[in-house]
């Protein structure tokens, strides 16, 4: 029972939402772009988004400056 988050293996927690996963990973919610198995998840859907065991999640973290 595990998921891949940014190439790292993490424990899979059934029913965990994307918002909860971001909190577990200590990512700041407004500063990321999230893909589940290559599909972009709109931020407004994070609180309701759950995912099955074994998925590959990419969390792209942005840092200010330009």
């Amino acid at each position: 029972m595990s998921i891949i988050v940014n190439t790292r293996e993490m424990e899979y927690i059934p029913e965990e939402t994307m918002t909860q996963l971001l909190k577990r990973m200590k990512y700041m919610f407004p500063l990321v772009v999230v893909k589940i198995d290559g599909v972009v998840i709109p931020r407004v859907e994070f609180p309701e988004t759950t995912f099955p065991d074994g998925v590959n999640i990419e969390i792209i973290h942005l840092i200010s400056g330009g």
Binding site: P30, L31, V32, V33, I60, L62
Partner: peptide, 10 residues
């Protein structure tokens, strides 16, 4: 800003 970057990319 990081927030605008994330919004734009998404």
């Amino acid at each position: 800003s990081a927030e605008t970057k994330a919004q734009f990319i998404e």
